[in-house]
Lab assay of single mutants.
Amino acid sequence: DEEIEKWIETLLKRNISLRVNGKDLEIGSEEFKEWVEKFIKEV
């Protein structure tokens, strides 16, 4: 979905790490990609 890709790009540009389930996810890491894929499937 384009919306999500733009959102991810924005996050990448800002180099933010997300806190997911109490863990810091490094943007661009494998864990982050897995989380994004799960997130996309749920939406």
Rank of each mutant, 00 (worst) to 15 (best):
V20G: 02
W35T: 01
S17V: 12
R19E: 03
S17C: 15
V43I: 13
E2V: 11
F32E: 00
F39Y: 09
R14K: 07
K23A: 06
I16K: 06
D24P: 13
I4Y: 09
D24I: 14
E3P: 07
W7G: 00
K6W: 13
G28E: 04
D1E: 10
I40R: 08
E2K: 13
L25E: 01
W7K: 02
E42Q: 11
I27L: 09
E9S: 08
L12V: 08
V43D: 03
L25I: 10
K6E: 07
V20C: 15
F32S: 00
S17F: 08
I4A: 04
R14W: 13
E2T: 11
G22K: 03
I4M: 07
W35N: 00
F32Y: 05
K41T: 06
E34K: 14
K6V: 04
F39Q: 03
S29L: 12
I4Q: 02
E2C: 14
R19S: 05
V20P: 02
I16T: 07
I27F: 11
R14M: 13
L12E: 01
I27K: 04
E37N: 13
E9F: 11
I27P: 11
D24Q: 12
V43F: 15
E5K: 14
W35E: 01
D24N: 10
F39E: 01
S29N: 03
G22I: 07
E3Q: 10
V43C: 15
I40C: 14
K13N: 09
K41I: 05
K13S: 11
L12T: 03
I16G: 10
K38F: 11
D1S: 11
G22Q: 03
N21T: 02
D1R: 15
I27D: 02
I40W: 12
V36G: 00
G28Q: 03
R19D: 01
K33N: 10
W35K: 01
K38A: 09
E9W: 14
F32G: 01
E31K: 12
D24M: 13
T10E: 13
N15C: 15
E5D: 11
E9G: 05
K6P: 02
K23D: 03
W35V: 02
K33Q: 07
E9N: 06
E34A: 15
F32T: 01
N15V: 15
R19N: 04
E9L: 13
I8E: 01
E3L: 11
I27T: 06
E34F: 14
L11A: 02
E31C: 12
K23N: 06
S29G: 05
V20S: 04
F32H: 01
S17R: 09
K23V: 08
R14S: 08
I4N: 02
W7L: 06
K33C: 15
V36A: 07
I4R: 04
D24L: 14
I4E: 02
D1L: 14
E5H: 12
E26C: 15
I40K: 07
L11P: 00
E3Y: 14
I8H: 00
I8W: 08
N21E: 05
R14V: 04
E30H: 11
L18F: 09
K13F: 10
N15K: 14
L12H: 01
K38G: 05
K41L: 06
E42L: 14
V36N: 00
R14G: 13
V43M: 13
K6D: 08
R19F: 04
W35I: 03
V43S: 08
K13W: 11
V36C: 14
D1A: 12
K6I: 08
K33Y: 13
L25M: 08
E3M: 10
D1Q: 11
E26R: 11
N21S: 05
E2P: 09
E3K: 10
